[in-house]
Design a protein around this nucleic acid. Structure first.
Length: 886
RNA sequence: GGGCGGUUAGCUCAGCGGUAGAGCGUCUCGUUUACACCGAGAGGGUCGGGGGUUCGAUCCCCUCACCGCCCACCA
């Protein structure tokens, strides 16, 4: 016999092991292909609740399609997370008192990272297993592994040769601590308190007059090349073309006219520092003013500046410059402001510096064209659809993608330089040498570019590089394009867009047919989870406490398209309870020998209750399938939740108890088989959501019934014909349920003691209702706790009444119940009906409504009015009887 | 500044042209042999404000307010 509770801890690990070792996670040899590539988590990462949601959804789809007979490939792996990993290992070196990476040297440092990766990397893949993720681990990939590195090389070289990768010197966001360029996308602008200083720039030919400029960054003034004013700004038109003296230096700079200067802002005159400001860079270009670099890569002052500032930290320099300006009487006050200051998104520690550097760029604009077209034409579809707009907006305004990083951990750029600076981009050093030799007609020494590629460069190839490309593997043929990409909206730009571009360019086809964008997991109050806030919910703690199934069901139930998922442990507990409920329903079936399911033909049951539940199940199965196909996980899970708890447990099990204890052998056998079969179908339907408990039940129930031939994970998905739905059975059982519910309600409302058994009379009932009462009498008596039930011609005086369909139900309660309470109840009900009738009359009295509304709607209103009227009449009669009796 | 989303029961959220729903919480009752991680029942909402379209609006449109998020900018 089954225990009263499911113990996830006791079975999860071994069930997972059984699945994996059976080969169930590998795509089957035949069948339509269904593939998903996992959004590769960072090798440094550990499972957070967002991963839990993301992978739960993927796993639900993978298991669903696997059961539907498809050859499912869920491709797992990790990315090398250039910056994050390098930081982790550098920190570790420091903690262990080792030399820093520069002292260690590049080769040794990279070796240490690999060692770290082998030892500590990939925690997350073990944690994904605990969640139940059915990835094909035998195919696990890493962006830095040999195959993927080969793909990276090939892609870089080809794009270079096609002119789609080039080197350029322009401003990038620079991290002075890590000393690397970072992507514009990785910049987080943080609102910071600061000051806006007003500085006087004296006119070169008349030192008594000034142009006042406003700035939040006085230290950059040493690199000013001009002061810009708006051409239409009358305050300054006279000054255009004149020179001003740049304070603290001996340089004079021109006053130029440019639309960029906004008369509304600051003083209307703006200092132009092309080397250290993105907007100024553009202004400088327009006016052919060469940038003057005054801040170096370590964020120290440098270059052509007064000696005293040299090698001074940028913020030290700011203080010093302000002090000197003050002394010279050139500071014209300051105001406090709050402005957005660029920080590195990951570390958030260092203020980034716009820096003029030479970097490698991908011509994203050219690659974006086909990627935009593919979404426009529907070759790739976003769910929810509106995320396509986000995608389009970014793609239409796409900027060159800076792909080089000044790090050591990553794919080193395959570019070699000859002594004269001539660059050779080839897949290997030998090829570069050969190319150089061909070019120079002799051997020349080459040095390789030091930089590595942005991690997202390799991630962009993930959909095909993981399948073995550039080799023509069977996997590429079979599983590319992938079926669906499941991801969050925050990486549409980083990843989805770039995969689209690379996929279309190199594979000549989209990387995925569907992009399912899910929401973010936030805390119970709706706030973003963060370590600093301390509101992080750890999925592993939840799994320990409630089991992986409870966590998964919670996430699925809450994953409404486009909505943030709020998580607290309370909800997880309630879905754990659902698991227990389901477990006990199975336990009930097993205890009552409802275990022989395999020879059952669902078209055969004779008994209404059995025909009804088969129909209900059929409907539920259809809903679950349709909702999963549409990625509405919450609807699919919700339909199952309702069916299991509110239909199967609340009613079916209660309804069949008498049949199971009855003496009718034929009905007994049929009921056992039906219950077993329905349970069996539900176990299958629930499996994608709750794989552990369902697999365990599958195994355990198999000990009592026919032998299981295979594990549930590879069983077939219920595909039930609509013909199994019997509307007449549904009508009858709904009548019965209604009768019982209303009786219970009346009893409770009138405080009839729960144990009291009372008689029920069905008055004025149609033949069909009488027959129904007769057929289900035993059940009704039991469920409504009746002494007996019967039909009658008239309601006896002194009874409690309610209306059920065409009939009046009278509960004989004389002596048990307070009749003034009953009168009150009747009056309340009559008033309610009056309200309804009035409302309907309002509609029907409106000629426009009758004329314009669809016939069915008008007819429905008429019927409802008639019903309400009839019910009211019955209740009024009951009220009169009651008053007469008192 | 541009864009997207939200505002529905005490809380968290579904629903989205034609009788307002769930989970949790609250209250009452209950040891009916699957389950107290349970059962039965109840209470609780002019569906953010205003306007419009419509025979009819929680649902569509406009507008306002507030709350999120994304992008851009911040002299």
């Amino acid at each position: 016999m089954l225990d009263t509770n499911f113990d996830p801890k006791a079975v999860e690990a071994s069930l997972y092991e059984a699945w994996e070792s059976s080969g169930a996670f590998k795509p089957r040899a035949s069948g339509a292909a269904f593939s998903i590539v996992i959004p590769p988590p960072n090798v440094t990462g550990s499972l957070h609740i967002g991963h839990a949601l993301n992978n739960t959804l993927q796993d639900i789809l993978a298991r669903f399609e696997r059961m539907r007979g498809k050859a499912v490939l869920w491709q797992p792996g990790m990315d090398h997370a250039g910056i994050a990993t390098q930081i982790v290992v550098e920190r570790q070196l420091a903690e262990q008192g080792n030399m820093d990476r520069r002292a260690l040297g590049r080769e040794e440092f990279v070796k240490r990272i690999w060692a770290w990766k082998e030892e500590s990397g990939g925690t997350i893949t073990r944690q994904l297993r605990r969640l139940g993720a059915s990835c094909d681990w035998s195919r696990e990939r890493f962006t830095m592994d040999e195959g993927l590195s080969r793909a990276v090389l090939k892609v870089f070289v080809q794009l270079y040769k096609e002119g789609l990768i080039y080197k350029d010197k322009r401003l990038v966001n620079w991290d002075p601590k890590l000393q690397t360029a970072v992507s514009d996308l990785e910049v987080e602008n943080i609102e910071t308190k600061g000051k806006l200083w007003r500085i006087k720039y004296p006119l070169a030919d008349d030192a008594s007059r000034f142009v006042v400029v406003a700035t939040t960054r006085p230290e950059t003034m040493l690199g000013d090349v001009a002061v810009a004013v708006h051409p239409g700004d009358e305050r300054y038109t006279a000054l255009i073309g004149k020179m001003v003296r740049l304070p603290l230096t001996d340089r004079a700079i021109p006053v130029i006219a440019d639309d960029y200067a906004d008369p509304e802002k600051g003083s209307g005159a703006v200092k132009i520092t092309p080397a250290h400001d993105f907007n100024d860079f553009e202004v400088g270009k327009r006016h052919k003013l060469a940038p003057i670099e005054v801040i170096d890569r370590e964020a120290q002052m440098s270059g052509d500046i007064p000696e005293r500032f040299r090698e001074m930290d940028r913020f030290e320099a700011r203080k010093q410059i302000l002090a000197e300006l003050e002394q010279d009487g050139l500071l014209d006050g300051a105001e406090d402001i709050v402005h957005a200051v660029p920080h590195d998104e990951k570390t958030k520690l260092v203020i980034l510096e716009p820096m003029l550097t030479e970097q490698w760029y991908v011509d994203a604009k050219k690659l974006a064209g086909p990627a935009i077209a593919a979404v426009e034409s529907g070759k790739t579809k976003f769910t929810p659809e509106n995320f396509a707009n986000t995608y389009f907006h970014w793609m239409h305004n796409i900027q060159p993608w800076c792909v080089s990083r000044q790090l050591w951990w990553g794919h080193q750029i395959p570019a070699w330089y000859a002594p004269d600076g001539k660059v050779f981009v080839e897949e290997s050093e030998d090829a570069a040498k050969a190319a150089a030799k061909a070019h120079f007609k002799k051997d020349v020494p080459l040095t390789r570019d030091e930089d590595v590629l942005d991690t997202w460069f390799s991630s962009a190839l993930w959909a095909f590089s993981t399948m073995g490309w550039p080799d023509e593997t069977p996997e590429v043929k079979r599983f590319y394009p992938t079926s669906v990409l499941v991801t969050m909206y925050d990486i549409i730009f980083f990843w989805v867009a770039r995969m689209m571009m690379m996929g279309l360019h190199f594979m000549k086809d989209v990387p995925f047919h569907n992009v399912l964008i899910h929401a973010r997991v936030v805390d119970e109050k709706g706030a973003k989870m963060s370590k600093t806030k301390g509101n992080v919910v750890d999925p592993l703690v939840l799994i320990d406490e409630y089991g992986a199934d409870a966590l998964r069901l919670t996430l699925a139930m809450k994953a409404a398209p486009g909505k943030d998922v709020r998580m607290g442990r309370g909800v997880v507990e309630s879905y754990r309870n659902f698991g227990t409920k389901f477990w006990n329903a199975a336990r009930f079936c097993q205890m009552n020998e409802c275990v022989n399911w395999n020879a059952f033909d669902p078209t055969t049951p004779k008994h209404t209750i059995n025909r009804w539940i088969v129909g209900e199940l059929t409907q539920t199965a259809a809903t679950v399938t349709a909702e999963l196909e549409a990625y509405r996980f919450n609807e699919a899970a919700g339909a199952l939740y309702k069916f299991v708890w509110n239909v199967f447990c609340d009613w079916y099990i209660e309804l069949i108890k008498p049949l199971l204890n009855g003496s009718d052998e034929a009905t007994l056998g049929e009921t056992r088989a039906t219950a077993a079969w329905v349970l069996e179908q539900v176990i299958r339907l629930l499996h994608p959501f709750m794989p552990f408990i369902t697999e365990e039940l599958w195994t355990r129930l198999g000990e009592f019934g026919p032998k299981r031939e295979r594990m549930l994970i590879v069983e077939t998905w219920p595909d039930l014909p609509e013909s199994l739905i019997d509307p007449k059975a549904a009508e009858e059982i709904n009548w019965l349920i209604g009768l019982v519910s209303e009786t219970r309600s009346a009893r409770a409302e009138l405080n009839v003691p729960a144990g009291a058994k009372i008689p029920l009379l069905l008055v004025g009932a149609a033949k069909e209702s009488c027959r129904r009462l007769e057929r289900h009498q035993e059940l009704i008596d039991r469920l409504a706790r009746l002494d007996y039930s019967t039909t009658a011609d008239a309601a006896p005086t002194g009874s409690v009444t309610f209306v059920h369909g065409e009939a009046t139900v009278a509960l004989q309660l004389e002596g048990v119940v307070d009749f003034s309470a009953e009168a009150e109840r009747l009056v309340k009900e009559i008033n309610r009906l009056d309200g309804e009738i009035a409302k309907i009359d309002g509609k029907l009295g409106n000629a426009e409504f009758v004329r314009k509304a669809p016939k069915e709607v008008v007819e429905e209103q008429r019927e409802r009015r008639a019903e309400a009227q009839a019910a009211k009449a019955k209740l009024e009669a009951a009220l009169q009887r009651l008053r007469a009796a008192v």
